[in-house]
Amino acid sequence: MKTFKCAIIEDSSTQRKLLEQIIEKNKNLKLLHSSSASAESLAEVNALKIDFLFLDIEMPVMNGFEFLAGLTIHPQVIITSQNQKYALDAFEFNVTDFLLKPFSNTRFEAAITKAIDKAKSVKKKQPESKLVVKHNLKQVELNMHGILYVEALGDYVKVVTEERNYIILSTMNAFNKRLGSENFIRIHKSYIVNLKMVERYNHEFIEIKNKKIPISRAKIVELDQLLNCIE
């Protein structure tokens, strides 16, 4: 199962520590950020592209609703509050769940299960990503999810899918920008791969459909992290 990236925004250091410990014990969760609400923490959370946000409401510098309003990403939000009166307003923000403090481990796990199910449901509803390219002087529409890898060929790139290959006039840098998806990573000067298609790998190469593709030393750590967080 995918490891879901999390952030905690909570004013109480005691409550933050409690949540950190609970998250640490859950094999499906990985904590990336834990702090009180502020302009700085809001910017960091937006940059992290987290999956789940555990959010308090009553905080001195910025309250939970102000924090929600400033988000530019769309994580599953689980409110953690001591005051039930915020529940109605919270659900108007389309939060995933509302945990009333103190909550039990059982209640926390139920909220996580709900968030995971909702995240998967949202992902399934996303339309296929299309990329229009010119191949053999014709415009071709590629399904990005079906791309296995991209290989550099001088002034061209070869886009390899399960059905066929496409030779496209483009630099690797330009084509990598066009892909613009977190599922693709340039692991070598001559290769971009679809992380969803990786079948096995070590620190020298990855394998996709019996094709061994070399890995640049500079990309090993990033590749480890990304493959650990993808379904």
Rank of each mutant, 00 (worst) to 15 (best):
K118W: 09
L48P: 00
N46K: 00
T3D: 09
K120Y: 09
A119E: 12
S121W: 09
S181V: 05
I215N: 03
I9T: 07
I79T: 06
V95P: 07
I23C: 13
L31T: 04
L153A: 11
I168Q: 09
K49R: 12
G154C: 02
L68V: 01
K189H: 12
K209Y: 09
N143I: 08
K27S: 15
L32A: 09
I78Q: 02
N26D: 15
I23R: 06
I167A: 04
M144D: 06
Q82S: 13
I168Y: 07
L153Y: 07
S121I: 00
M1N: 11
R164H: 10
K27E: 15
A119Y: 10
T161A: 09
K49W: 05
Q82G: 14
I78Y: 01
N173R: 14
K30E: 14
A7K: 01
I23M: 14
L55P: 00
V193K: 05
G70L: 01
H203M: 03
Y201T: 09
A111G: 06
L71E: 00
F205M: 06
F93Q: 14
K49Q: 15
M1Q: 11
K130G: 05
I23H: 07
F184D: 11
Q76Y: 03
I8A: 02
K30M: 13
I185H: 01
S104A: 06
M1A: 13
N183L: 06
V159I: 15
Q139V: 07
L42I: 08
K130S: 13
K118Q: 13
F103R: 03
S12C: 06
S104I: 02
N194H: 10
I168F: 07
M1H: 11
E58D: 15
E66S: 07
I9Q: 01
A115R: 08
E222V: 08
F65C: 13
N143L: 14
D224T: 03
P60H: 02
S104F: 02
L131E: 06
N210D: 12
L32I: 03
K114A: 14
N136R: 07
E207T: 15
F205K: 07
C229D: 04
T96R: 14
H188A: 09
K30F: 10
E199A: 05
N63H: 04
I50H: 00
N46Q: 01
A174C: 11
L99Q: 07
S36N: 12
K120L: 11
L19T: 05
Y191L: 05
M144C: 14
F91K: 09
F54M: 11
